[in-house]
Nucleic acid binder design. Structure first.
Lengths: 211, 211
DNA sequence: ACCTGAACACCGTTCAAGT
DNA sequence: ACCTGAACACCGTTCAAGT
């Protein structure tokens, strides 16, 4: 609901940048990254072949913009997951995981772009997961679990790594279609809760009796 | 060492198919999937633009061949990991995970292609992980752990999913460069052992006192 | 400030023709 | 059986010219 004021009939003023971004994400959602063509995008938006270059330096920069947007939303979804959870450390950790997976499954176009090697160096977003806020929230939740005896008390980083790998791996496997044909999970919400509950349970069970 | 007999000086008979496959993997290793061009491949091999099409129906079929090869080697590496481990169920599980991660890090070109959505339907390989042998080994190891009290005794599938997600996620994050700039891991072998040891430890610790 | 449309180098794929 | 090389449609990107 914010300040995006749209003109009426035609694309040519309005917000070509937004239109390109949204159309691109939709294409990647449905047909994968390699199906994305700036020329086709311009055609779909009803503008000429050169028009996109007034909003993005290159195809790569368009993708980087999508990745930045994705990291913002990922952090937001993780915060939401934590906010909806109980206050104890284990529930908080579980909420973060839930948010991560929910974001990935609901925005597979963004997710596919965010973790591509080619763009890792160019991310401008301050709270990109590999760099900042999301990672920090995860680490803090693990530290709280350890402080409350809800996690084994060794090096926290290996637990951070395990937790992150779990939610990331499950998201990637589902999005790329490796899980659909297995007797594993049937729907997305089940996957999200199953993964985040199980991993937190394993961590917590090992904790309450660790050194 | 098997039956690949190479002619002497020139590519033009020898084994263009193999040369194309190997060059392609090398390109994807270094510059990612989107940097792969059949035309450039042909140039590098010293053949004409149409030559690759006598060995692969299309660019996509070349990638499917790489994926098939990758799944074969992944299963082999998992078997090797299990063979080198102790005989108890937890060590076996750990060996499979080690093999998975080691394969991924040593063959990132293959790994990147193997799990791409676009190819999931066309895999011809009988022991592709999502379909067969690798998945079966993982499931059996989990079942053995449960039988020996080295894993919680509920639905085995959620543990299979957790274990697979962990090793897959860690591999993907490392390969795509999300882990390099973190205070998490420094080298590949450390990552592989840290992930597989920690997850098996968590599973085992929850097991020895579960119902 | 934003858009057009022609231009260039490149790519995937096809196909008649060669050996 | 395998390879050539021209051809076609498509793509990313640039740039003078328009409003």
């Amino acid at each position: 609901m914010p300040r995006i004021a749209k003109k009426s009939g035609t694309y040519h003023h309005g917000d070509l940048r937004r239109v390109l971004l949204e159309t691109a994400v939709r294409v990647i959602d449905h047909d994968g990254l390699s199906a994305l063509s700036l020329l086709a995008l311009a055609r779909k938006a009803g503008v000429s072949s050169g028009a996109p270059y007034h909003h993005f330096e290159s195809r790569e920069q368009l993708l980087i913009a999508i990745a930045d947007e994705g990291f913002e939303r990922l952090v937001a979804e993780m915060k939401r997951g934590a906010a909806e959870a109980n206050a104890d450390a284990a529930s908080q950790l579980r909420g973060l995981g839930l948010g991560y997976i929910r974001f990935a499954l609901a925005h597979r176009g963004h997710f596919r772009v965010m973790f591509r090697t080619e763009f890792q160096r160019h991310l401008s977003n301050p709270h990109a997961v590999p760099g900042g806020e999301g990672f920090g929230m995860l680490r803090d939740a693990i530290l709280r679990c350890q402080a409350e005896g809800l996690a084994p008390s060794g090096d926290p980083m290996s637990l951070v790594l395990i937790a992150w790998s779990c939610v990331h791996g499950a998201s990637a496997l589902w999005i790329d279609g490796s899980l659909g044909n297995k007797p594993l999970v049937v729907d997305e919400e089940t996957l999200a809760t199953m993964i985040s509950s199980t991993i937190v349970q394993l961590i917590a069970a090992s904790g309450s009796r660790a050194s």
